[in-house]
């Protein structure tokens, strides 16, 4: 099998899987019914994308793996999502900040992925970008509302941005598989997106009167499978059924 392509697919899909899982935890607990429904829509979009990637990955692997074994049967060290998406739903400020910091990246990434030489990937990107374009709008609007809203909301969203900022740099790190896929014209050269990313983020934060954190040290490790302590708990739930009742169909 094409190991690099396989790993590259997981690198994209794991982000959406873990973020979708985090958003799924919120269903039924949102600050208003309307917002609850909106967040679930985003979660559903992400899981839809995840399934396309994993189904493709299963085909690339060409053995008895399927989307569910890929999603649920790996040990923690083999999940390669960035640390940002596994951060908890501390409050709605964190939910929105995490979403916003990821959405802006996600949109830029998918924009480029549309011209991938790999037709399947390009097709998934073309479909997904419409969804993610809405996610960016949704989370940016909320960033502005919370930043500008009340004293309390301003404080909370500023805190969330400050805390999550340390996980943004990792979005642009490249693994061996990434480099190989970029060279083949399949993958997206994320290093070229970085400047634009921070510019766009800063524009929205400025408008929301949120200070752009001035941080020199960033966290990394997710792409190598070295996660934060939150990850084990996420997987405990995600994998519960497949681990407790292996080799059954549902």
């Amino acid at each position: 099998m094409n190991t690099n392509l396989y790993n590259y697919l997981l690198g994209i899909a794991d982000n959406s899987l873990i973020l979708g899982q985090r958003l799924g935890e919120l269903c039924g607990h949102g600050p208003s019914l309307e917002t609850d429904i909106a967040l679930t829509n985003i979660s559903l979009d992400l899981f839809g994308q995840v399934r396309s990637y994993y189904q493709y990955a299963a085909k690339v692997a060409g053995d008895n793996r399927d989307e569910d074994t890929i999603a649920m049967m790996r040990p923690e060290r083999e999940y390669v999502n960035v640390l940002l998406v596994e951060q908890p739903n501390t409050d709605f400020g964190y939910v929105i900040a995490r979403q916003f910091l990821f959405d802006v990246y996600h949109y830029m990434f998918l924009t480029e992925l549309q011209s991938s030489k790999d037709e399947t990937l390009a097709a998934i990107a073309k479909k997904s970008i419409k969804e993610v374009s809405y996610h960016v709008r949704f989370s940016s609007d909320w960033i502005k509302r919370l930043g500008d809203g009340t004293e309390e909301s301003h404080k909370r969203i500023q805190n969330a941005i400050n805390d999550l900022w340390t996980y943004t740099d990792e979005l642009f790190h490249q693994t061996e598989a990434d480099k190989k896929m970029i060279a083949d014209g399949v993958g997206v050269d994320t290093s070229k997106l970085k400047e634009q990313y921070y510019k766009q983020i800063s524009n929205v934060l400025d408008e929301a009167t949120i200070e752009v954190p001035d941080l020199k040290y960033f966290q990394k490790g997710g792409k190598q499978g070295v996660h934060t302590e939150h990850m084990g708990y996420i997987l405990a739930e995600l994998q519960y059924m497949q681990r407790a009742y292996p080799n059954m169909s549902w």
Partner: peptide
């Protein structure tokens, strides 16, 4: 968060969302 497959997970999410 514990649905046994991705197919079941999206169906359940959509259903619970419908209830909202």
């Amino acid at each position: 968060s514990r649905a046994p497959s991705l197919r079941r997970k999206v169906a359940l999410l959509a259903k619970v969302q419908d209830e909202g």
